[in-house]
């Protein structure tokens, strides 16, 4: 048995942990593939602040990581519907927007938004919609409803991708059934569960947005739920990807930049937020990730094809339903639903 301990010790030694100093640092926790590398480089060069980026792929993972007290992040980015939860749980702090010189660039509607109780818990990073996309090289029937996604015809069966994050996955099924977001009605949620369970045999993967975009491009998925900007990026590689605007409506969200409580580099975080409120930099966010931002003046720096992208322009007559902040009872139902769906 002695040799085992030797082997174990050796493998432990191979896992080297790196530590960094807290001076001139900025630790960002953001969605995977969401932070433009050129922006980070520019910020580092202009301020001398060293930026570290860590990524996640569902809002729920971010929330639980902050709740566990882990990470020591200075900047987080999460959907607007999660901001009141983070605020109520004491996980984020005011960002001091008033003192930032670039506040005037921000679209004022975000200062009074209902997810932003004191107007100072964050500013938009990007905003967009959630629906689904279809690969038109393979499937050419007309699509105007979530029905194609939830009860797929033969050609799409086994080639469907769905979100693994609870709020994103459930909200699409709720749109399909006409059930309000964050429903507290068990019988309504039971119907949502049944739709998702019936769809499950046809689902190839429950994944994150970025991964599913790649699988749409590579042809492994033919239809997949996704965010508008991911399809903008996917379409650059595969022009036949079509972002569908279902007649039942699309979900909309704003990813918000916030500062966690106890951030060790609060001033650097403020400097970064101020930095991305500059039109040129806000445009860099959009040009990289393919979504709209909260700075109107950034349009002149944005890629032209992006300004005309059908994924970012919701057609008239399509309902746009903002994601809501769920009460504890509603989150409970969602959690139970997810466990029963995936077990």
């Amino acid at each position: 048995m002695k040799s085992i301990y030797g082997i174990l010790a050796l493998t432990t030694c191979l896992t080297v942990a790196g530590a960094a100093y807290a001076e001139g640092q900025l630790n960002i926790y953001n969605w995977a593939g969401y932070t433009p590398p050129d922006l980070v480089k520019k910020f580092e060069a202009e301020t001398g602040i060293d930026v570290t980026i860590d990524t996640y792929d569902t809002n729920e993972v971010l929330l639980s990581k902050l709740q566990a007290g882990g990470g020591s992040y200075d900047i987080i980015v999460t959907a607007h519907s999660f901001i009141p939860v983070h605020a109520a749980e004491g996980l984020i702090q005011p960002i001091g927007l008033k003192d930032m010189e670039n506040i005037e660039n921000l679209d004022p509607q975000y200062l009074t938004a209902d997810w932003n109780p004191e107007g100072d818990y964050g500013v938009p990073w990007q905003w967009g919609t959630t629906a689904f996309a279809v690969d038109r090289t393979v499937y050419n029937e007309p699509v105007d409803s979530y029905e194609t996604l939830f009860t797929p015809p033969g050609a799409l069966q086994g080639k469907i991708g769905m979100f693994k994050g609870a709020s994103d996955l459930i909200s699409l099924a709720q749109l399909y059934l006409g059930v309000p977001f964050c429903s507290e009605d068990p019988s309504e949620m039971q119907r949502v569960l049944e739709v998702l369970l019936a769809q499950k045999p046809h689902v190839k993967v429950y994944g994150g947005g970025g991964a599913m975009r790649e699988q749409l491009v590579s042809g492994e998925l033919i239809a997949a739920s996704n965010y508008s900007g991911q399809i903008v990026r996917g379409r650059e590689q595969k022009p036949e990807l079509e972002y569908i605007y279902p007649k039942e409506g699309v979900a909309s969200w704003i990813d918000v930049v916030a500062i966690p409580k106890g951030a060790q580099n609060y001033e650097n975080a403020q400097e970064f937020i101020n930095y991305i409120l500059q039109p040129e930099h806000a445009a860099m966010l959009s040009n990289h990730a393919g979504y709209s931002n909260g700075v109107p003046a950034s349009r002149e720096f944005m890629r032209e094809d992006l300004l005309a992208a059908p994924e970012l322009i919701v057609p008239d007559g399509i309902r746009v339903v903002p994601l809501a902040t769920c009460t504890a009872a509603a989150s409970d139902l969602e959690a139970q639903l997810m466990t029963q769906l995936l077990e």
């Binding site: 729920e60 639980s64 566990a68 994050g165 989150s331 959690a335 997810m338 466990t339 995936l342």
Partner: peptide
């Protein structure tokens, strides 16, 4: 799900 993922689920989505 496997046991490990069930545990992971409890700390994230299922809360």
């Amino acid at each position: 799900l496997m046991l490990g993922s069930l545990i992971h689920l409890q700390f994230t989505t299922a809360r």
